[in-house]
Amino acid sequence: MNCRRAKTLINDFIDGVISDQDRIGLEQHLGGCSTCESLASAMTKSLELLHRMPQAQPSDNFNWKVRLGIAKARNASSVDAVSKRYWLKSWNIRFAVSALSTFVVVAASGYFVLKGKVLPDDKLTFSAPRQVVDVHSPVNTAAKRQEKALGVGAVGPTVVSTDDKTSPGRLESPGLLQELPGPTLHTDSLTSQFFKSQIDRFRMGQLEKQVEILQSELRKCEQQDQ
């Protein structure tokens, strides 16, 4: 038996799990090897010393502290459970409110969309009169001149005429006309009438103002020409 094997068997011997054959072999080895013999002796004595050590005793109120700990833990767990239930409840309420509001919004949107599609076009659709701009008309030229004088860019229509075919200087040539898209309103007849009247008033007001300005410009031009 070599020393390495002997060292392993020393632990087995201490644990009491060594076989008779190994024990005899170990005893023979220890008899002839002072290093292993002293190692085995020191190991046995050090562990004997450890086993001789008196057991430490916990404090007298140990059991009471354990009971107190259990009571605290129970209390904490019940508080946790209550707070968890409350959180769950409040979360449910929040979810219900948000779900209801979403439903209302979606339903209202759907209602208006469907309503707009179902009703007949002749009663609902109102197309505002298209705005026709004649850029080469004398009036427009004068207006452009006015814009230039005022330092205004291409913001807003220079001259706007409606489809009433009575506006002066209107040319039928499509290449010289720029069509401005007019608003297309889909609404019921009463509302359309209201909008129509408002838009007409607005447009008329714009025209009147523009016409006044242009007429004064035109007069100036005519005076200069003379």
Partner: peptide, 20 residues
Amino acid sequence: VRSRINRARNHFRRLIEPLL
């Protein structure tokens, strides 16, 4: 477990041995 106990025993023995 066996290996760790053996190592710990040797460790403990080395610490206590000089006293012995």
